[in-house]
Structure formats: structure tokens, C-alpha cells
Design a protein around this nucleic acid. Structure first.
Lengths: 229, 229
DNA sequence: AAAGCGCTTTGACATAAGTCAAAGAAATGT
DNA sequence: ACATTTCTTTGACTTATGTCAAAGCGCTTT
């Protein structure tokens, strides 16, 4: 059987707390499992609490006035989302949908706030977490506003290859359409840029498998804004 | 003479605290005055603390690889900046430069953290503040990625007219070049769009004075992504 | 006034990226 | 295995926005 306290200790948001604190948290956390493509909440819904991903993946996105979807982020195991609404008391600012079979832990707003009200250490952890998130957004803004699509794609590929550890090959874990939206563009444009990068010998892609052949050039495109010819 | 405690009580970040808490804060806060266009910190500088604007205005911006400036935000009286580095312990993620004669209050990292470590209420205030900022960024991302420049400009004009309260006339408080950067574009494009909005009868602009003539159409452009012909 | 400087506007042009449409490929259900 | 749907790729075209260059305007300084 699973051990709630141990699972909570593995969540970065709650790292470094005492045994009693973990137990208090596991008492107020509510477990919830969802199949793929189930909706967790919608933009505008009242924020009654926040979620931690135990297993699986959750997609956070917004729908524009013209009906296009802009994916803001994917959250995986150990990451939390929806905390902002806990403290602002407003509705959720975006949609959340599972991108795979997913297990979540839900922390209701009222019980969590009363917990934090007595516990500076817990609050400090959350502050650091929110700060990191804020930094991430600042980077995202920079990406969207200062770089063109090939740069964003190059950066994403390098990010994936760094995380996967191995030297050259990368496996996309989302569809190309979703990747396009995550990069702030559309599938056609992404497809053309991938084809071009293949032609230039920067990558070698077959389906979701992508080998990075010329990391140096990719870095020039991602970091220095160099254009791909 | 000025009253430090009263000034601190007027800062939203610290609203609702006790007299003792205000006094503790005013003991660790360091006052600093700067003329216009003075640099507070640069991207990458070590974050030794954070700032609160008492008077004046501070511009937060990043320089892209190609050397273009993207303005992220302006902070005015009562607002704070640099807090993220206090909790992440990393360097500042952007540049900060005064946009006018400005008075700041500086809170050194170490003393502030030890203060917060003993005070859940103070931590909760900060959490709410960071959450609000996070929400703001989510909106900014949406703007940059989902809307074209006329939409962003229309939104900004409506925002200004809403804040200024009065019905129709708006006075730009930054140069058009700066406004262009804030909207993620360049002065030429901004100029053309203003000219077009004048031609369409949406606004009437002379220099930094802009009258909003057709608020309904501006809202369509800002919120529904309608194009201006 | 004149001169000089920065900001703004305008024009001609280049290009990245979106739209529309259709064909291919891959995944899914029956 | 087939049919159906969804995802991906490709092509022709449009458009918004950036680049480069020059002229205009408003400001301060002499």
C-alpha cells in the first residue's frame, strides 16, 4: 500500500519539513485519480484549493478570443499548480486538463491557509516555490517577445536533451501540434522549421524521434538569436 | 520630518500588520534616493535584498541577444521589486533603472528572511503579493502570445483611461519609444498604428495627449482580437 | 534666432509567420 | 483488415511587423 507521508516528503514544495508537518499535510490532502484528457478546472472557476501532481501530467492552457489554444505549461510529478488562487482568492486564470493518466493531491484552501498561518517554515518553502515560478514566467516572456520560432524550438530541443541526459537523441513526449502551441505558434510553421533544420543538418527527425546533430548551431539560434538560413 | 512607520503601513505588501511589525520592518529598511536614469541593479547581479518604491518610478527591462530592450514593467509608489531573488537566492533576472527622481526602501536579504521566519502573517502577505504578480505575468504572456500589436495598444489605452478615471482623455506618462518596447514592438510600428487609429476615428492623438473617441471599437480590438481595418 | 539634439513620423522594402486548402501518414475503433 | 478519424506535412498566398533610410518636429542651449 502507498505511504502518504513519504509521498509528501518527495514534493519539492514541502521539502525539509518535520514529520509532524508532513502528517498534518497528509491529513488535509485529498487524493484524486483521472484518466487522460479529463478536465481538472476551467478558467474562471473559483479556486477552492491547489493541486500537486503525484503521477502523470497536467496541461495548463488558455483559450484566446479567436479560439486558439496557448499552452502555458506542463506540470509533472512533484510539481504543484493552482496555488496562486489560494492566496489571491480569485478564480483560476487558465484551464487545467490531464495530459495522461494522472494522480493528484488536492489541498483545500481553507485548511491549507490555517496550516500555513501557524507555520513560517511552510510559508518560506511556498515563497521560494512561487519565486521560482515567477522567474520561469519572466523567462517565458523573454522567449515569446524577443525570439522567433526557430529560436524557441532550438531552446526547447536543447532543454529536452539536457533533461534526458543522453547526448544526442530526444523523444518528444507531446504531439507536434501541442508543441507548436507551447512554443506560441501553429503546427504548419513548426513542421516547416523542423524540415528546414533537417535540411541544414542541425537535426535528424523521424516522427517523435529527434537527433541533435549540430548542438553548437542550435545554441547559436536559441541563445544568440542567429537565424537559420 | 517623515514618519517611517507610517510609510511602511501604506505599502500593500505590508498591509494589515501590527505596530510592532511595522517598527521591526522600519528598523531593517534602508532608504535610498536616486535621480532619473540611475541604475539600481543589472541582470545577473547578486540579489542581496529587495526594494520598495516610496516615490517615483522604476523600469524593469531585459536586453535581448540582439541588443533590443524589452520593458517588462514599471513599478510606482507602494510596489516592490526584487523579492524573487530574496527567496531563490539567485541573481536578479532583469535590469532596474529609475524612470524619474525616485525614493526607495531597501530590505537586506538576511535580516528580512529572519524576520519572516518568525512571522507567518508577514509571510502570508508576501505570498499573496507574489501570487498577484504571477497572475499579472500570466496575463502578460497571454497578451504577447495571443494578440497583435493593435490589441495590446488598445488594451493599454483602456487601462490608462480606467486608472486615470476620467472619461476620454489620456496622457502618456512615458515616451512613445518606451511604450513601444513595453508593448513588445518598435517605435515605427507603434507610430503607424496610432496614425491608423486616428484615421479610423478611434482616437484623437496630439503628442502625448490621446483622446479615446470610440471606446467600444477599442474594446473589440483589445478583448476580442478584432482587426482594425 | 539659429543650431543642435533626441524623439517621432513616413516611406520603400524584406521577411517571418499566419491562413487556407489538400494530400499523406499515423493512430484508433469496429 | 478495413474504415474513420486525427495528426502531420506541403504548397500557394496574405499580412503583420521588422529593417533601413530620410525627413519632420519639438526641445534645449547657445
Amino acid at each position: 500500500m502507498f505511504n502518504p507521508t513519504r509521498q509528501i516528503a518527495a514534493i519539492p514544495l514541502f521539502s525539509g519539513l518535520s514529520r509532524e508537518q508532513y502528517e498534518a499535510l497528509s491529513r488535509i490532502g485529498v487524493r484524486r485519480s483521472s484518466a487522460k484528457n479529463e478536465r481538472i478546472f476551467s478558467e474562471g472557476d473559483e479556486g477552492t484549493g491547489f493541486y500537486v501532481v503525484l503521477a502523470g501530467r497536467v496541461k495548463i492552457s488558455k483559450i484566446s478570443a479567436e479560439g486558439k489554444e496557448q499552452i502555458l505549461h506542463f506540470f509533472g510529478p512533484g510539481e504543484c499548480f493552482g496555488e496562486v488562487s489560494v492566496f489571491t482568492g480569485q478564480g483560476f486564470p487558465a484551464d487545467a486538463v490531464t495530459a495522461a493518466q494522472t494522480t493528484l493531491l488536492f489541498f483545500p484552501r481553507t485548511s491549507f491557509v490555517s496550516l500555513i498561518r501557524n507555520d513560517p517554515a511552510l510559508a518560506l518553502n511556498m515563497l521560494a516555490q512561487l519565486s521560482r515560478r515567477l522567474r520561469h514566467f519572466a523567462g517565458l516572456i523573454e522567449d515569446l517577445s524577443l525570439k522567433e520560432v526557430p529560436g524557441r524550438l532550438a531552446k526547447y530541443l536543447l532543454y529536452l536533451s539536457g533533461r534526458d541526459g543522453d547526448a544526442g537523441a530526444v523523444e518528444l513526449d507531446i504531439s507536434k501540434g501541442q508543441l507548436a502551441s507551447l512554443l506560441g505558434t501553429i503546427p504548419e510553421t513548426l513542421s516547416r522549421i523542423l524540415a528546414k533544420m533537417n535540411r541544414q543538418g542541425l537535426i535528424r527527425s523521424r516522427g517523435a524521434q529527434i537527433q541533435l546533430l549540430d548542438r553548437a548551431s542550435l545554441e547559436e539560434i536559441a541563445l544568440e538569436g542567429k537565424k537559420l538560413p
